[in-house]
């Protein structure tokens, strides 16, 4: 069984703050991390490998330094990796990203299974996986919380829905995106970490993938960001200080008068 995991290096959003005076992002101390959901994708792929044998390949599209993200997941036991890096890929929206990744999957493949994270924390779109599958014309299932069975030919999974879960069966090759319930991410081993240091990470540009430059990057992206701004503070905010009892009654009275709560407080 050959599995591909798509991972993305993202800025650690917990450290990004808005400067209230200038309304701009403060980048100070922002590190790059492997998108947390993609570690679950690696875990899912590695668990299948433990069970069925085969190989796990990691792929990312990003700037040259995204190589460190690939090495990090090799520490978990991923066998090899490919970096899709080219100035032509800059400014990709999900459509152009999925185009490039689909080309990459063809180049590095063929694969029986492609695993993506549920979403990337910098964009939170959850689009790249499904778009990639549609481009490769293979079945896909999003938000997989459990792999029920897989024999290398056919796979059955539990897909998280808002009102419960569905059990879905499909033939390989296919793509799944996974949620954190898929299983706890293993700890990198010393042996794998050493191997990861030495393993070559080939870099592929648009030409190597046979990708049309006009379909990549900003050029190939149907969507465009026209404005970026700080979320506007809520209007009509009030901050009250005083005796606890007083505060409690005052807020309940207000909520009751505004019919936000049903209790009659007077």
């Amino acid at each position: 069984m050959r599995t591909l995991v798509c991972i993305k290096q993202v800025p650690d959003t917990k450290n990004i703050k808005i400067d209230p005076e200038t309304n701009t992002l403060i980048r100070q101390g922002v590190e790059s991390i492997v998108n947390p959901f993609d570690l679950f994708a690696c875990e899912a792929a590695l668990a299948l490998k433990d069970q069925l044998g085969g190989t796990v390949t990691a792929m990312t599209m990003g700037p040259p330094q995204a190589e460190s993200a690939l090495r990090e997941v090799m520490g978990l036991g991923v066998d090899d990796a490919g970096l899709l890096a080219d100035q032509a890929f800059a400014g990709s929206d999900t459509w152009a990203t999925s185009y490039t990744l689909a080309k990459g999957a063809e180049k590095l493949g063929p694969f029986d299974l492609i695993v993506c994270g549920k979403q990337a924390i910098d964009g939170d779109t959850a689009q790249v996986g499904p778009e990639m599958a549609a481009r490769l014309n293979i079945p896909y299932v999003s938000f997989v919380r459990r792999i029920v069975s897989c024999d290398g030919q056919e796979m059955t999974v539990e897909r998280l829905m808002d009102d419960g879960y569905d059990v879905v069966t499909f033939k390989l090759p296919a793509l799944v995106t996974v949620v954190k319930e898929i299983g706890e991410v293993r700890v990198p081993s010393f042996k794998n970490k050493m191997k990861a240091k030495k393993c070559p990470v080939p870099v592929y540009g648009a030409a190597d993938l046979g990708a049309e430059e006009s379909s990549c990057g900003l050029e190939g992206s149907p969507t465009r960001v026209v404005r970026i701004f700080a979320p506007k503070p809520r209007d009509n905010r009030e901050k009250w200080e005083g005796e606890p009892e007083e505060l409690a009654v005052r807020v309940l009275k207000r909520l009751s008068a505004d019919k936000i709560i049903t209790a009659a407080i007077d």
Binding site: W95, Q127, G129
Partner: peptide
């Protein structure tokens, strides 16, 4: 943007060949 919508809508955008903005 339910589980169902977030799952199948991106596939539609890719098949139709257009952009999609989530959430």
């Amino acid at each position: 943007a339910t589980a169902l919508g977030r799952s199948f809508f991106p596939g539609v955008a890719a098949m139709v060949g257009t952009g999609l903005t989530a959430d």
